[in-house]
Nucleic acid binder design. Structure first.
Length: 487
RNA sequence: GGUCUCGUGGCCGAGCGGCUAGGCACCGGUCUGCAAAACCGUAUACUCCGGUUCGAAUCCGGACGAGACCUCCA
């Protein structure tokens, strides 16, 4: 445990930055809402997962023992814009003419692959909703017993009006239910609900449902919000430290989670609620309904029509971390290119660091240069500031290389370790792996030698022909004092 | 319509009352046969109008603009 830090976290519940004090010293329980596996997660989804992966890594860096739970939604009734119940997984299964579990399995495999591509650390536990139906039923039973839910025709609804007499519905989202009431006039069509704001805990099965579970109220499906309550409670307890998710889940999903937790166990599940902001494309939230979304694999493979070339996943990840998690981020080709250049500068600085020659004394304090980096982490996981401080460090690396600054062997080692930790462990950026193709590299050695010979003979026509020819093949020649290299 | 957030230099994006954020692009320099690359350096900003303050991008009020949520969404 790093003793000399004070982590501050922006708590959505209070709307303020607060000192982070875990419930159990040195331990952190964190729950993050994961993907619904009825389609492939898009880039916006990935931003949220990348942000919480970064937060997870920061907590580990600070020395906490973190239990990180991120669920997988593979069941659950949802309501669409027309007010009808739609089982998104079920309908995807019907469209594809396969069983729901096949849908879930297919996309789960893809999601796991994306986690590897984007270098997400695996959570401690990745529980699936379908494996916790019994736990969900038990929570619902508890809510009914406490008088905050009612059964209608094989379905169970959360009783928001009764709940409001004892608790604050809207504590997270700041919504006043009375205001909502006026706006939702057409709502009385919802026959079973007593009150428009009531939400389903359990939904009676429809004849066409492909996934159905038994319950004390008959066959049916769990409501959308209850799985998170059941699983967070099972793995982290009735009360834990951090609950995270995308900003768009704040209402109703997280608000209802709080209601369910209070309604069953009498407490808000999380001390700190954290919300990651959206990824924008063309100034709008990336969303299927806007048609401005692309897949995390498309940007890596260069198959998205939005971009003219592929970008390595590490560059995309780096780009995302150059914005704070609470800010919206606009993704454009121009911005991505800027990040790519910066990424390479950072990476080259890092590899130069390993080649530096030590001196007999140090001309600056390594700890001082990197204190900004740790301070940034502690200030609500400020990744952009962290990155800025690493670029400052890169300046020092070059200064050492040019003999303007010196470090002893010991300090150099310290510097290298710290930089590697920040870049690889905290930011989760792996140096881009160059394909080590021995044959190509042998050929290139020869080509470069030929060009060098031509240059020595001042045969510029030949040397430029080689250079231009290589450029056409996508290989860039870099001349420097130390010799010629390529990439 | 209601609730909320935001408006920073050519672009992305930090900042949360006084101190150069950072990256990219631009421009200048070093290097170079030329170029590229690399490195160094300079410049450019806080939507508008009021107010508070010795001092405001930063706080308050208003205008305009953008976005999110209110319905599935990371």
């Amino acid at each position: 445990m790093k003793s000399d830090h004070q982590l501050v976290i922006y708590n959505s519940l209070s709307g303020k930055k607060e000192k982070f004090v875990p419930l159990h010293e040195d331990h952190v329980g964190m729950y993050v809402c994961g993907p619904t596996l009825y389609s492939e997660p898009h880039m916006g989804n990935m931003r949220t997962f990348i942000n919480f992966d970064f937060i997870y890594r920061c907590l580990l860096y600070l020395g906490y023992k973190v239990k990180y739970v991120r669920n997988i939604t593979d069941a659950g009734h949802i309501t669409n814009s027309a007010g009808q119940e739609v089982d998104s997984i079920g309908s995807a299964a019907r469209t594809a003419q396969v069983q729901p579990l096949e849908i879930v399995y297919t996309y789960n495999v893809k999601f796991q692959e994306l986690q590897r591509i984007y270098n997400l650390m695996p959570p401690s536990i990745e529980p699936a909703a379908t494996a916790h139906i019994q736990e969900q039923i038990e929570v619902i039973e508890q809510i009914i017993e406490n008088g905050f839910a009612y059964v209608v025709n094989g379905s169970v609804y959360f009783d928001v009006k009764t709940y409001m007499q004892a608790h604050n519905y809207g504590i997270l989202s700041g919504r006043k239910v009375d205001e909502l009431e006026q706006e939702t006039r057409a709502l009385n069509a919802q026959e079973e609900k007593r009150f428009f704001a009531d939400f389903a805990l359990w939904k009676k099965a429809n004849p066409e449902d492909m996934q159905v579970w038994r319950s004390p109220w008959g066959n049916g499906n769990p409501g959308w919000h209850i799985e998170c309550t059941a699983m967070s409670t099972k793995y982290l307890g009735e009360r834990f430290d951090i609950h995270g998710g995308g900003l768009d889940l704040k209402f109703p999903h997280h608000e209802d989670e709080i209601a369910q937790n209070c309604g069953s166990f009498g407490c808000n599940p999380a001390q700190y609620w954290m919300h990651a902001n959206m990824l924008n494309v063309n100034g709008q939230k990336m969303s299927k309904s806007f048609g401005n979304y692309f897949l995390p694999k498309e940007i890596v493979e260069g198959t998205s029509t939005l971009f003219t070339k592929p970008y390595p996943s590490a560059v995309v990840r780096f780009f995302m971390l150059q914005a704070h998690y609470r800010s919206t981020l606009d993704i454009t080709e121009e911005a991505l290119n800027a990040s790519e250049k910066g990424f390479e500068r950072l990476m080259e600085g890092l590899s130069l660091l390993e080649k530096l020659t030590p001196s007999s004394s140090s001309s600056f304090e390594v700890a001082k240069v990197l204190s900004a980096a740790e301070a940034a982490i502690c200030d609500d996981f400020n990744a952009p500031i962290l990155i800025a401080s690493l670029f400052d460090a890169v300046k020092y690396i070059h200064a050492i290389n040019e003999g303007k600054e010196q470090l002893t062997q010991e300090d150099l080692l310290r510097f290298t370790q710290a930089m590697t930790t920040f870049v690889q462990d905290v930011l989760g950026i792996e140096p881009s792996k160059k394909e080590e193709n021995q044959r190509l590299s042998d050929v290139m050695d020869m080509v470069i030698t030929l060009r060098q010979q031509a240059r020595e003979k001042k045969d510029w026509t030949a040397s430029d022909m080689i250079r231009d020819g290589l450029a056409k093949a996508g290989i860039q020649i870099k001349d420097s004092k130390e010799g010629t290299s390529w990439s």
